[in-house]
């Protein structure tokens, strides 16, 4: 027994406590709250604002943030807070579609490659390597050329790009489970291949995949917003966070709020999802 193991064994005998850092838990709750609010914005924006995100009111142009207009108004007099709330739908559904697509494609390719091995594995493995060696954002841009501009197209592009990441993770998880002693023990217990896949391999790959899903959700929000920022995603007048920042950039010299609030919204939501995923990852490792 090593010294470290001895130290760990001793501290382990103490009854486990939920958490030694109440502040850490508070962070998790806060992050969950931010994500929940953003999701509600996307599902039911009219609960949070009564204004119309597309209503042009020239008389109210460039109003700085106030009690009436929390985030101020833009060059057409539209309420920026309303546009940010409605923008959640484009950004979050986009990220959701992207991650769902990535998980679907990645899980199929990864499981097939990891379980069957041999030639199947080498072909899929090489293909994954190639996709991963093209800088991801450029790959997504290339797909956008093919699909055209729009939030959904951007989401598909981002999803296809990150499916390689999922495929690689799931493949390695399946491989790890497949070569593990407990799968070997299941074989000697007489379990069939199908039963082993269903009872051991897939459930044990799931937790790692879940952690990656939350990470990739944050990345997808950033990428879709970045594509929109570049003019390659959402098209005006649709409210979308990246596009809102891009719209505001012409006025940053004097009307900073136009970029500041949408920008901070993206940061808050992504920070919150990353924090949640970090928390999930930590819970996973005992």
């Amino acid at each position: 027994m090593t010294l470290i193991a001895e130290a760990e064994a001793e501290t382990r005998t103490a009854p486990p406590r939920r958490s030694r850092r109440p502040l850490g838990d508070a962070g998790v709750y806060l992050a969950a709250l931010v994500v929940a609010v953003a999701l509600l914005w996307a599902v039911a924006p009219n609960l949070f604002t009564s204004a119309d995100p597309l209503a042009v009111q020239p008389a109210l142009r460039f109003r700085p943030p106030s009690a009436d207009h929390w985030f101020g108004t833009d060059q057409l007099g539209r309420d920026l807070y309303t546009r940010v709330v409605y923008g959640a739908r484009a950004s979050l559904t986009g990220a959701g579609v992207a991650v769902a697509l990535a998980v679907l494609v990645g899980a199929i390719l990864g499981t097939v490659a990891g379980w069957f091995g041999g030639v199947t594995d080498s072909v899929i493995g090489r293909a994954i390597d190639v996709v991963l060696s093209i800088p991801g954002f450029l790959f997504a841009i290339t797909i956008v050329v093919l699909l055209g501009f729009g939030v959904l197209q951007a989401a598909v592009a981002v999803g296809l790009t990150s499916s390689a990441t999922f495929a690689r993770l799931i493949r390695s998880e399946v491989l790890k489970a497949r070569s593990s002693n407990y799968v070997e023990a299941a074989i000697t217990s007489g379990a069939s291949t199908f039963a082993i896949l269903r009872r051991h391999v897939l459930p044990n790959s799931f937790t790692a995949t879940l952690a990656l899903i939350t990470v990739q959700f944050g990345i997808a929000i950033i990428w879709i917003a970045s594509l929109s920022f570049l003019g390659l995603g959402a098209q005006p007048p649709q409210p979308e966070w990246g596009l809102l920042v891009s719209d505001g950039r012409n006025y940053i010299a004097s009307r900073g709020w136009l970029t500041l609030w949408p920008g901070l919204t993206v940061v808050a939501v992504v920070l919150a999802t990353n924090h949640l995923s970090h928390h999930l990852g930590r819970r996973r490792t005992p």
């Binding site: 944050g218 917003a225 970045s226 920042v245 950039r249 940053i252 920008g263 993206v266 940061v267 992504v270």
Partner: peptide, 9 residues
């Protein structure tokens, strides 16, 4: 967590 375009802007 901070997108490049936000930092840049």
């Amino acid at each position: 967590s901070v997108p490049t375009f936000v930092v840049g802007i």
